[in-house]
């Protein structure tokens, strides 16, 4: 089992539904975000190119946040999901500094918080909240180890990029381009 997500940058319109769905589903405190939308504009008017990316934790195979955690609070859970055990986290900030994607933050209660791929929903056979609400269906989620899963198929078929692969993190978000 290896959970992964593919994000179709050609279909995403940047509506931020995924962000709001995550905040509602996971009771993310006001002013914080576990996922976010980046709008990249390239070129000079009138030759402009636009790319929307719905970003979140990359649930890296070689996660620097997990390696640098002094207490084992950051760990790789079933299916490769990178998680934080709140009662083990001391809030030292090492994992936040270690993440090249700035995907983690300090919850107002003191522990470090981040995207969990909504594993509480996965247990019930549902998709993560962001995937479930996407109005353009630009988010694909599933098991990369299963060659017939939706995400495996779309990554095989389409051209994609990952973010900062040269950081050696082996990220598991695939941006279809």
């Amino acid at each position: 089992m290896r959970y992964a997500m593919a994000i179709d940058t050609k279909k995403c319109v940047g509506c931020s539904d995924c962000v709001v769905a995550c905040q509602t589903e996971n009771l993310v405190p006001h002013g914080y975000a576990r996922d976010w939308i980046v709008e990249v504009t390239d070129g000079t008017y009138p030759q402009l190119e636009l790319e929307y990316r719905s970003e979140r934790c990359n649930h890296c195979d070689n996660a620097p946040c997990v390696r640098c955690c002094p207490t084992g609070a950051s760990f790789i859970s079933e299916g490769g999901i990178v998680k934080v055990e709140h009662d083990k986290c001391i809030g030292c900030g090492a994992c936040i500094t270690a993440c090249p994607y700035d995907a983690r933050f300090v919850h107002p209660e003191g522990y470090v918080d981040k995207c969990t791929f909504c594993d509480h929903r996965l247990e019930q056979g549902q998709d993560p909240a962001c995937v479930a609400v996407c109005p353009t269906k630009c988010l694909y989620f599933g098991d990369m180890d299963d060659p017939n899963s939706e995400v495996s198929l779309v990554v095989k078929k389409r051209k994609f990029k990952t973010l900062i692969p040269e950081a050696g993190t082996e990220p598991q978000l695939y941006f279809l381009i």
Partner: peptide
């Protein structure tokens, strides 16, 4: 590059 969803994690 912009955060269009307005991310501003403290």
């Amino acid at each position: 590059e912009l955060f269009v969803s307005g991310r501003s994690n403290p």
